[in-house]
Amino acid sequence: MELITGLFNYWVVVFLMMIGFYMVISHHNLVKKIVGLNIFQVSVFVFYISMSKIKGATAPILADGIEVYSNPLPHVLILTAIVVGVATTALGLALTVRIKDAFGSIEDDEIEAMEIEECVAEDVDANGKEASP
């Protein structure tokens, strides 16, 4: 029983992480892939924060009469990671917008098909020029 309550937080983290992972590898839509990465990212945050928690401790703000504080170091790391995360997400979304402009689609299988078509067309052109003279 203690094993289950003690490790439950890690299992939640693993489950969320795998949901994000599944979203990234199974969906073709680029926006959905970015959302999947976000889920993955938040699961890592939860992992760090849950490691820093000590039973019976309070938030790491110094006050009289409090002996036990939770570990402040992971909080610092995650605090900056969240803001950096949203900045990089914005960068990813901007890339998506550019891809939409260039290919007219944000589904990666369609984009791949378009690129293959282009390559084939170029090959045909090259062969045609060699054959004609």
Binding site: S70, H75, V86, L93
Partner: peptide, 28 residues
């Protein structure tokens, strides 16, 4: 995060996640 004593982190996540990133997502 709030339950796990990380008040600063909870604050940031609420402001960033529920505010800014939703707006950016809708813009995209």
């Amino acid at each position: 995060y709030l339950v796990m004593d990380a008040v600063d982190v909870a604050f940031t996540e609420a402001a960033v996640g529920a505010g800014i990133s939703t707006v950016l997502m809708l813009g995209t």
